[in-house]
Amino acid sequence: MTQSSPSQLPDTSARRRAMAAFAEATTDELLAALDPIEAAHGATDLRRPEAGLVMLRGRIGGDGNAFNLGEASVARASVCLATGEVGHAYVLGRDVGKARLAAIADALWQASATREHIEATIVQPVESRLSAARSDKAARVAATKVDFFTLVRGEDA
């Protein structure tokens, strides 16, 4: 088994949130944030970036037992920093270069020296971009909501 983190295991929910942002980040967003960090350039591959498949499961009736719906392409990578932090990434799509950058971001996020920087330059900007896109879309969709009204009869007119 791979030992994913050193003794000070970070809070899982915070790391999950960060990893979700890395998965949603574009290659440009990741590059822009990681390039200035020296430690990012010294990362070595624990597992060569590769493309593969994850079988997506649905639920029968939306809330029942699982069934296999169909696969999605997924890229994954695992890296190790010179300082020992290990980063992993699984992202939808076949962009193995992006998966490697996301794994580096995950490793840097675990290092106390660089976590702040990663939060400020990737996690927060990506989350606000997504949240703005979500509310823009919701606003456009909400405009198509049906308002039912009862036809007014003659005597009330």
């Binding site: 994850v54 499961r57 997924v74 879309k137």
Partner: peptide, 17 residues
Amino acid sequence: LPRFGYSLPLETNDMAI
């Protein structure tokens, strides 16, 4: 392509409509 595994069941109740 190799298969990495299976997802958790997709939660359609939480769909962004």
